[in-house]
Amino acid sequence: MATLAARERRLGWGLIAPALVWTAAFFLLPFAAMLALSFAHMEGRAIVSGLSLDNYARALGDPTMLKALVNSLEITAIVTLVSVLLAWPLAATIAWTIPPRLQRLALLLAVLPFWTSYVVRSYSWLLVLGKNGVLNKALIGAGLLGEPLQLASTRSATVIGFVHFFVMLLTLTIYANLVQLSPNYARAAADLGASRLRVLWHVILPLTLPGILTGAFLTFVLCIGDYITPQILGGNTELTLPQLIMLQLQRSGNFPLASALSVVLMAVVTLAYAAVARWIRLDRL
């Protein structure tokens, strides 16, 4: 028996080893390399390795850098909140109003633009929000507006682009949560005399909270780390942290500072995870 168990275990190690080695070599090791680089400094155009905390002092002390972190946090908070508030009713409407056999189709349609290229999707919003864009032309044509609104290259444009993407994502996760819900809870509450609004607020909403939080956390992680949407839609007016990281890397060639900023970004995400870890189930995605 012992030999069989040992043989099986050896086999198990053999099967899992490639994935572990890959993750160690191309995920852990790169992160270590980036961490080491964040303690290095620049002399002219050359990177000199060392153990200096200067990059972190700059990342958290320099007002423009700190502003980028604050911008990222603000945008992410607004996007997460607005997306949840828009997606929940959408998921609920699909789950409760649409006949069951059409629900899958409705859901597929609701997330269809999800499958357009991410870069192209942000660009498409530029066509809608630009000075000569569809929205301005329509509003002026309807006589509601004299001058075109400056929508592109603003924080609002970044938020709209993000919300569009995350409403689709959250509708999926919240819908999955809603249809798993047994109707008996709502029925029991109604039998005991609760109004429809009270059932919604005190029974159904709390039951879908884990799904909402999981989706919201996913939104937070993807939103705060994204470079494409703020770069295309927000432009250079209000830099986000990923934009600042790319600027340091490409314009200034300051890889050490870019690394320190990335470590800060990762620390923020880790802190957020630690704060909500108790309530969310990543493995249930």
Partner: peptide, 8 residues
């Protein structure tokens, strides 16, 4: 974030 994986 993909950005951090790429930078690493």
């Amino acid at each position: 974030s993909y950005l951090i994986i790429a930078l690493g």
